[in-house]
Structure formats: structure tokens, C-alpha cells
């Protein structure tokens, strides 16, 4: 059953999945081409100075990419379910409704995490070639909130998409916007050192949000 469920979800998101990977990879390639270019035409130490002393984040181009990926994966997964109320088919499958919903989310999260880990590695590790360890470590801690925002956006997109009433959709969207905004509060590299764990906790709580929608569906509000 896991296999079948994942098969369906994969059919829905595979295009978007590869697209996300491509966009992320191209952005990272662009970032490092720019670094290389700066090293050649300007001075390496000036570039370092920008990062170390002037709060310059050399991969700022990447900032909203995980967020975008979270949103489009969420849309790709849940729009086909609400179109023509196909969620009825999913909930009719011979398994517990909550499990069915959660399996969908789990698959989405697996794909998202796979994408994020790949992009994280692509973004962070090549940096070691140009920069000392400290820069790489703080860069890694800088991108964690960006990826967290993407994960949050995925859950919130799912919730907003599945929500049938426009009134609630708008409320949820406002709330989602305020929440996602919290991940982009500080332009300082590494500012989320003490906050990313509690944020992750909130995101985990939010991962259950799809259940709300399923309860409401079962009550017949959809």
C-alpha cells in the first residue's frame, strides 16, 4: 500500500521534482560562477572581506528557492486531489483516512527532504574550495531557516489547497505568510542559531494540519 500510494504521489510530482532540482542546481551553478568570476576579476581577499566583515551572503540568490520548491511541490501534490474532489477517491481507498492523508504528506516530505539535502550539499560543499571552514559552517546555518521556510510552505500550501472554503483559505494564507516571513527576519548570517530548532518544532506541529482538512471533509463541510 505504501508503494502504491507513493507511486501515485510520484506521478503527480515527478515533473515538478526534476524541475525544482534543475532550477536549484542552475541557481547554485550561477552562484559559483559568480564567485569564480569575482575571484578572477577582483581580489579573493576583497570577496572574503565582504563575507566576513560586511555581512555579505554570497549565495543570497538562493534565498527563496527552497521556499518556491516547497510551494510548487505542495501544489503539484494537492491540486490534483482537490480537482473534481478526487480526495474522495483517496479517502475511499481501503485504509484509514488519516493514514491515507499522512502517507501523502510523508511522501511529499521525503521528496522535499531529498531535494533539499541534494541542494544543500551542492550549495555548501563546493564553497569549501573557495572559503575557510568557518564561512562554510556559518553559511550552512544561514540556509537552514531558508530550507525550513520551504518545508513550512509545503505543509501550509497543502493545507490551503485542500481547504474548501475561500474564507478559510484567505485566513490560512495570511497566517502562512506571517509564519514564513519569520524565517526571513534577519539578514545576518547565522542569526537563527538559537531559533531553528523551536521553529522546526512548530513545523512538525504544522505537518498534522492536513488532518484538520480531512476531519472537516468527513464532517461533510466540503
Amino acid at each position: 500500500m505504501w508503494k502504491s500510494m507513493f507511486y501515485k504521489e510520484w506521478i503527480k510530482i515527478r515533473l515538478v521534482f526534476w524541475l525544482s532540482l534543475a532550477i536549484g542546481a542552475i541557481a547554485i551553478l550561477g552562484i559559483y560562477l559568480n564567485v569564480r568570476h569575482s575571484f578572477i576579476i577582483a581580489n579573493a581577499h576583497e570577496f572574503w572581506d565582504g563575507i566576513i566583515n560586511k555581512m555579505y551572503i554570497y549565495f543570497n540568490l538562493f534565498k527563496f528557492i527552497p521556499l518556491g520548491i516547497g510551494v510548487i511541490i505542495g501544489l503539484a501534490q494537492f491540486i490534483p486531489e482537490v480537482k473534481q474532489r478526487r480526495i474522495k477517491l483517496t479517502l475511499h481507498l481501503p485504509l484509514n483516512e488519516e493514514k491515507a492523508g499522512l502517507k501523502m504528506v510523508i511522501f511529499g516530505v521525503i521528496c522535499l527532504v531529498a531535494l533539499y539535502l541534494t541542494l544543500f550539499a551542492l550549495l555548501i560543499f563546493p564553497g569549501r574550495y573557495y572559503f575557510p571552514y568557518e564561512v562554510i559552517a556559518l553559511s550552512a546555518s544561514t540556509v537552514i531557516p531558508w530550507f525550513s521556510a520551504g518545508l513550512a510552505a509545503y505543509f501550509l500550501t497543502g493545507m490551503i489547497t485542500i481547504e474548501p472554503l475561500w474564507k478559510y483559505k484567505v485566513f490560512y494564507a495570511l497566517l502562512a505568510f506571517s509564519f514564513v516571513h519569520l524565517f526571513f527576519q534577519s539578514p545576518i548570517a547565522g542569526a537563527y542559531k538559537y531559533a531553528w530548532l523551536p521553529f522546526l518544532g512548530i513545523i512538525l506541529l504544522m505537518s498534522m494540519s492536513i488532518l484538520f482538512s480531512i476531519y472537516r471533509f468527513r464532517k461533510g463541510e466540503m
Partner: peptide, 8 residues
């Protein structure tokens, strides 16, 4: 404040 702990 977060710092790279490197200095010129």
C-alpha cells in the same frame, strides 16, 4: 552576534 570568527 553571529560571527565567522575570522579577522583581517
Amino acid at each position: 552576534m553571529p560571527s565567522y570568527r575570522l579577522f583581517p
